[in-house]
C-alpha cells in the first residue's frame, strides 16, 4: 500500500476539556487513487488531511507514505487550500515558479516549466497578472498549476472548490479529474459536497463527527472519465451515501382502516 494509516487518533486539549478529533482511523490508499474524504464539518476530515500532508501531527497511531512515517510537509506531496494560498505580490508566473525555486534549475528551465503548467490549466493569457486581478476559479487554477509544476506524487486538496460558484466548481471538477488521470497523481480530496465526491472519487471515505471517525468506505464503480451526474448509476451511489448519512426520508405510511 502506498499510504498506510493505522490506528491514527488525535486529541485536542481545549481548556481542560479533551476533544477527540480523530479516533481509530485505518485507511490504505493505492498509488494513483482519487480518494474523497467526505463528511460534515467537525468530522476531522481536514485534520486527517493535514496530518497526511505533515502540517499537523496525529497524537497516536501512524501515517506512512511510501513506507516512511509522515513527520513534516514534503515537496513530493503538495497541498491545495480552499483560499488558494497564492502570494499576492507575485504574478501568476512567479507564483507557479515558487516551488521550482529551491530546485537546481536554470532560470529558463524554471520559466518554461511554469509556462507549461499555466497552459495546462488554461491561463496562458494571464501569466503576468497578479492573483488579485483573477476570479476565484482562476486563482484556484493557478494554485493547481503551482502544485503540478513541482511534479508531486500526491496532491492534497482541502475543500479546494468550496469558495467557488456552482458552475465554476463543476468546470474545475472536470479539469482536476482529467489532470489527475493524465498526470497519474494520487489525490486526497476533502469535501462536504456529496455529488462532488461521487463525481471525482475512486473511493469515498465517509466520515462522522464526535469523535471524528471513518463511518464507511464507498467504492465508486463508475467509469473514470466523463461521469454523468444524472445517470442512474450516479444516482444509485448518491442514494447509498445518503443512506450512510441517514438522510434518506422514508415517507410516512398512513394506515387507514
Amino acid at each position: 500500500m502506498y499510504i498506510e494509516i493505522t490506528n491514527a487518533g488525535k486529541t485536542f486539549k481545549d481548556g481542560g476539556e479533551e476533544l477527540r478529533v480523530l479516533d481509530n482511523i485505518n485507511l490504505s490508499i493505492d498509488k494513483g487513487e482519487f480518494i474523497c474524504l467526505l463528511g460534515p464539518s467537525g468530522c476531522g476530515k481536514s485534520t486527517l488531511l493535514n496530518a497526511m500532508a505533515g502540517f499537523d501531527m496525529i497524537t497516536e497511531g501512524s501515517i506512512k507514505i511510501d513506507g516512511k512515517e509522515v513527520k513534516e510537509p514534503s515537496v513530493k506531496n503538495v497541498t491545495i487550500f480552499q483560499n488558494y494560498g497564492l502570494l499576492p505580490w507575485r504574478t501568476v508566473q512567479k507564483n507557479v515558479e515558487l516551488g521550482l525555486e529551491p530546485k537546481k534549475l536554470s532560470k529558463e528551465e524554471r520559466a518554461k516549466t511554469a509556462e507549461k503548467y499555466i497552459e495546462l490549466v488554461g491561463l496562458s493569457g494571464f501569466k503576468n497578472a497578479h492573483p488579485r486581478r483573477l476570479s476565484g476559479g482562476m486563482q484556484q487554477r493557478v494554485a493547481i498549476a503551482r502544485a503540478l509544476a513541482v511534479d508531486p506524487d500526491i496532491i492534497f486538496m482541502d475543500e479546494p472548490f468550496g469558495a467557488l460558484d456552482a458552475i465554476t466548481r463543476m468546470k474545475l471538477q472536470d479539469d482536476i479529474l482529467a489532470i489527475s488521470k493524465k498526470e497519474n497523481k494520487t489525490v486526497i480530496f476533502v469535501t462536504h459536497d456529496i455529488e462532488e465526491a461521487i463525481f471525482l472519487a475512486d473511493r469515498i471515505v465517509v466520515m462522522a463527527a464526535h469523535p471524528g471517525r471513518i463511518k464507511s468506505i464507498v467504492d465508486v464503480h463508475l467509469p473514470r472519465y466523463q461521469r454523468e451526474r444524472t445517470s442512474d448509476d450516479f444516482l444509485l451511489i448518491r442514494d447509498k451515501v445518503f443512506e450512510i448519512f441517514n438522510m434518506k426520508h422514508i415517507p410516512d405510511i398512513e394506515f387507514v382502516i
Binding site: 502540517f55 514534503s74 515537496v75 494560498g85 525555486e101 529551491p102
Partner: peptide
C-alpha cells in the same frame, strides 16, 4: 499562516523565507 504553510510545503528554507515570504 497560509503563506508560511505554502512555503514549508514547497521546501523554502530559513534564510530565503525572509525575503521570499
Amino acid at each position: 499562516p497560509i503563506y508560511l504553510k505554502v512555503a514549508k510545503n514547497f521546501g523554502i528554507k530559513k534564510p530565503e523565507i525572509f525575503w521570499k515570504i
